[in-house]
Amino acid sequence: MKAVETAINHIATAQDILWTPYGLNEEHVHKAFAEIFSHKVDFADLYFQHSLIEGWSLDEGIVKSGSFNIEQGVGVRAVSGEKTAFAYSDDIGLKPILQAAKSVREIAGVGKSVSKNLKTGKGLNAGAGLNLYGPLNPIPTLTSTEKVELLRRLEQFARKRDPRVIQVMANVVGA
C-alpha cells in the first residue's frame, strides 16, 4: 500500500509541475493519445520535461559568472510496425501537444500498420517504484547572496588548508 501512495504522490507532483501551470489535465492527455491512435499506431507515449539549472563561478575571490537556465517541453513518440516517429515542442500546452501528436501519427501512419487491442482504463496507471529522489528543488534553498558566500567560504577553506594554494576556482551548480 505504501508503494501505491508513493506513486500517487509522484503523479501529484508531476501534475503540479508539468500540467497545472500550463492549464493541462488528464483529459487533455487522453485527447492527445486519441489523436495519435486515430490511425493504426501500436504504441505511443508523451514525455514531459521541466528542469532548472543554476550555476555560480568564483575565481580569485571574484564572481566570474552566474547562469540560470530553464529547459522545458513535451515529446511525443508513436510506433507503428517498425517505424518510430518523434515530435517535440518547447512549449507545454494543449495546442502544441496536439500538433506533435498529429505529426507523429502521420509519420508513423506512412509505415506498415499493425492492429493491436490496447487496454484503456480510467485514471493514470500508478505503478509502484522506488523513491530514489524527492521532489525538492535545491535552487531556491539558498539566496543568490548565500550562494556567493558559500563560494567565498570554500575559497577561504582552501587557502587556510594549505599555504601553497595560489589560485582557487570554485563552482556551485544546482539542478
Score class of each variant (00 low, 15 high):
Y22L: 12
W56A: 03
V74Q: 07
V29E: 11
L130N: 07
I97H: 02
V110E: 15
H30K: 14
K122C: 01
S65P: 06
V79D: 11
A101T: 03
I53Q: 11
D42Y: 02
K40N: 07
S113W: 02
S38Y: 00
H50G: 07
A32I: 04
P21M: 11
F86G: 05
A126W: 05
Q72L: 13
E82H: 09
F68W: 07
F43K: 12
N69L: 12
L46E: 07
E54L: 02
S51W: 03
V74S: 09
G111E: 13
V79T: 14
I53M: 15
K116D: 09
V29Y: 02
D90Q: 13
I62F: 02
E106G: 02
P96I: 00
S89E: 05
V76A: 10
L118F: 06
N117T: 15
G23A: 08
I53L: 11
L98E: 05
V79C: 08
S51V: 11
G23C: 08
N125Q: 08
L94W: 01
L18A: 10
F37E: 04
K83R: 15
K116V: 15
G81N: 06
G66P: 00
S51Y: 07
L52M: 12
K31Q: 14
Q72M: 14
D90L: 07
G55S: 12
E71L: 12
F33K: 06
I62W: 00
T84V: 13
K40M: 04
K119Q: 14
E60T: 09
I53E: 14
P96Q: 05
S57P: 00
G55K: 09
G61M: 05
G81C: 03
A78K: 05
L18S: 07
E27G: 14
P21W: 10
G55H: 06
D16G: 10
F68R: 08
V114I: 15
D91T: 15
G55V: 07
A14H: 12
G123I: 04
I107V: 09
G129Q: 11
A78Y: 01
G23L: 09
S38L: 01
I36T: 00
A126G: 11
P21G: 10
A87Y: 05
G66D: 12
G61F: 06
R77P: 02
D42C: 02
I53H: 14
A85E: 06
A34I: 05
A44L: 01
F68M: 06
K83N: 13
K112N: 13
E27Q: 13
S103T: 08
E35F: 02
G93L: 08
T120D: 04
R105H: 01
G55D: 11
P21T: 10
Q72E: 14
K122V: 11
E60D: 14
E60R: 15
H39R: 10
I92G: 05
Q72K: 15
K119L: 14
F37W: 03
I36V: 12
L132Q: 09
S80P: 00
S67W: 05
A78L: 02
V79N: 10
E60P: 00
S115P: 00
V76E: 03
E26C: 01
